[in-house]
Simulated scan of single mutants.
Amino acid sequence: MFQDPDDVRKSDDVTQHGGRIRSFKHERGNWATHVYVPCQPHEEFQDLLEKMGSLLVKHGVALTTMKEFHISQSQTVVLRHHWINPFVQSLRVRLGSMHRFLCIADRIQVYTNKERTRTFVGLEVSVGSDHLLEVVSEVDQSLKEFNLETFYQDPSFHVSLAWCVGDAAGKIEGPCLEELQKALDAHEDAERLTRFYAEEIRCKAGNKVFCIPLK
């Protein structure tokens, strides 16, 4: 099964944060900020994760389960403390009139971050991408107001399930990925477990989380 995230060793050297490497230097007064759609999985989702984790171990890959599940609507950007409230207010103005929508995430994919220092296994969204693109378009406008980097071009919207340090994509792609997809498709609750409604957008800045409900 996947490793428990609490078993990952943490320290103050380059292996801090479970071995993750910061993509930007931490400075006092700078707040790492991220906009996303939260996903609340059913209890049975854990059973599916355990089955997938066992398959990955068989292929020589041990991953750590995500503590929370979400679909990113921005990259992680840096906000100065005094920008946080104005930025969140901009998001509220742009997103507050949007309606909630259905998402189905049922395609197993493997991803790496830009620096290829982390690898993720995730569920790619097959239904709801058009709505997510609308959200990203509005979020991008708010980011531009503060001269911040916008989201990726042609994004692959997905729910990350688990991760590991380093570039393990080569071990997961191919037969391993096919087995993971078959395990998902064969799960008796797969159709229900991969469906959810996007009911709110969240912005996390440091340890603060701001919620923007959708209509």
Rank of each mutant, 00 (worst) to 15 (best):
K10F: 14
G170F: 08
E115V: 09
S126G: 05
M52P: 02
E188G: 13
V8H: 03
F151H: 06
Q40S: 13
R94Q: 11
R116N: 08
A168W: 08
D130W: 13
G128V: 01
R100L: 10
V127T: 08
D13Y: 09
L91H: 00
S142E: 05
D13H: 03
M98S: 12
I201A: 01
V209C: 11
I84F: 12
K215R: 14
G60L: 03
T65R: 10
V127S: 06
K208M: 15
P41V: 01
V110P: 00
E145W: 06
R107V: 09
E145V: 10
R107P: 07
K171Q: 09
I71T: 04
R192C: 13
D154W: 03
G96Q: 08
L184K: 07
S72V: 00
S160M: 06
F120R: 04
Y197W: 12
Y152M: 01
F2G: 02
N30V: 13
S90E: 11
E149W: 09
E199P: 04
G53P: 11
H17E: 10
V139I: 08
T194R: 07
D189C: 15
H26W: 12
G18T: 02
T64Q: 09
F69K: 00
T112I: 09
D106Q: 00
K215A: 15
L133F: 15
V37K: 05
F120E: 01
Y111D: 00
R20I: 03
T65H: 10
S137K: 12
V136R: 00
L63M: 06
P175Q: 01
K208I: 14
D185A: 13
R22H: 10
K114G: 06
V139K: 03
F69T: 00
A205R: 05
E149T: 10
L55E: 04
T15R: 09
F45E: 04
Q89C: 11
V93W: 13
A105I: 01
S97F: 11
P175W: 02
S97M: 09
N113I: 03
E145G: 10
V57T: 08
P86K: 10
I201H: 01
G206Y: 03
L95P: 03
L161E: 03
G128L: 05
E179W: 00
I84T: 05
Y152F: 04
V135N: 04
E188M: 12
R94K: 15
I172D: 01
K51I: 14
M1E: 09
